[in-house]
């Protein structure tokens, strides 16, 4: 028995010898690898090939390689540029409020109080719903004629006349973002709350003895301790939000006049209404590139070296 040499130390240093456990490792990972290769990477590969083909349902008899033509067509399209800019707004202005409100909520829920369980149950609801349904609900509430949000704003005396939320390009963008914030706060709140609860209580007690105030504790203990979670959660959110067409699809479907399209809904539209799979695939390739570059940059900037631990 060579158990002693085979233990993994607390710091995770590997002492197992590969050869002995090779088969075990292989078998355990096999299902995951097979599934992901066949049903994610194979279609991806096919999709990337399509990006260089004239692949349109209007012209199926004529599928051929056309080099960078799809990319050129897309780059020249105003709609694409618009959705690129929108994607930035969409991610940035969804993320920031989600992060801060989520953080504050988590801070307030850290300590037990009476009814916290019930409260949590209520505020976690949005996360249980689908983007599609959320879009529908908000569309109903934002309805320019007799929508409840206009009615509330007027009752509160904030506005005099109804705002055409979904008919005006700027308001429409605001609307989809607000709905997305509503949806996403919960995710941050859960992740951050979990991280907060893992902070050993002794750390705070020590700080209190040192006379640290609330904000000092927050910035000297809490934030540094949960920083890895914050970094990873934020990166994941950026990726997910950019690739999240469901809500926009059912709330505005990119309208009016493409003013709420982000890259993923623009791509969806290329497929659903343009039936141009080649161009859609080209947009997809661009999305992947953007996200890879962003992730690398982000991880370098935050000096975070555990990219795999998403």
């Amino acid at each position: 028995m060579k158990i002693q040499t085979e233990t993994v130390t607390e710091r995770g240093l590997p002492l197992f010898r590969m050869s002995k456990h090779g088969l075990f490792i292989f078998l355990c990972l096999l299902p995951a690898i097979i599934l992901v290769s066949i049903f994610t990477y194979y279609p991806l590969l096919k999709g990337v090939i399509m990006a260089f083909q004239n692949y349109s349902a209007y012209d199926l008899m004529n599928i051929r390689f056309i080099g960078l033509e799809n990319f050129k067509t897309i780059m020249a399209d105003i709609g694409f540029k618009e959705s690129l800019v929108n994607s930035f707004y969409w991610v940035f202005f969804s993320l920031i409020p989600q992060f801060f409100i989520g953080f504050i909520v988590a801070l307030m829920l850290r300590r037990k109080f009476k009814g916290r369980g019930v409260y949590q149950a209520f505020i976690f609801f949005p996360w249980a719903m689908s983007g599609f349904l959320i879009g529908l609900i908000w569309r109903w509430m934002l309805n320019g004629q007799g929508g409840v949000i206009n009615d509330l704003l007027m009752k509160l005396g904030i506005i005099d006349t109804a705002i055409p939320f979904l008919a005006d390009p700027t308001w429409a963008m605001v609307s989809v973002i607000v709905a997305n914030v509503w949806y996403g706060i919960t995710f941050f709140a859960i992740m951050i709350l979990a991280a907060l609860q893992s902070i050993p209580e002794e750390l705070f007690e020590a700080a209190k003895i040192d006379g640290a105030g609330y904000f000092q504790q927050l910035f000297n203990i809490t934030v540094p301790y949960i920083l890895p979670t914050l970094i990873v959660t934020t990166l994941l959110r950026v990726i997910w939000i950019l690739n999240f067409p469901d809500l926009i699809y059912s709330l505005t479907n990119g309208g009016p006049a493409g003013s709420t399209h982000i890259l993923s809904t623009y791509m969806l539209e290329k497929i659903m209404f343009g039936q141009n799979y080649g161009q859609a695939a080209a947009v997809g390739v661009i999305i992947i590139f953007i996200l890879i570059f962003f992730s690398i940059f982000y991880l370098l900037a935050t000096k975070f070296n555990k990219a795999g631990d998403f």
Binding site: I239, N243, M267, I271, A280, I292, F310
Partner: peptide, 13 residues
């Protein structure tokens, strides 16, 4: 990387 792949790119294949 799978997290970054837009669903629609591989939909037709």
């Amino acid at each position: 990387i799978t997290q970054m792949i837009p669903l629609f790119i591989g939909l037709a294949p």
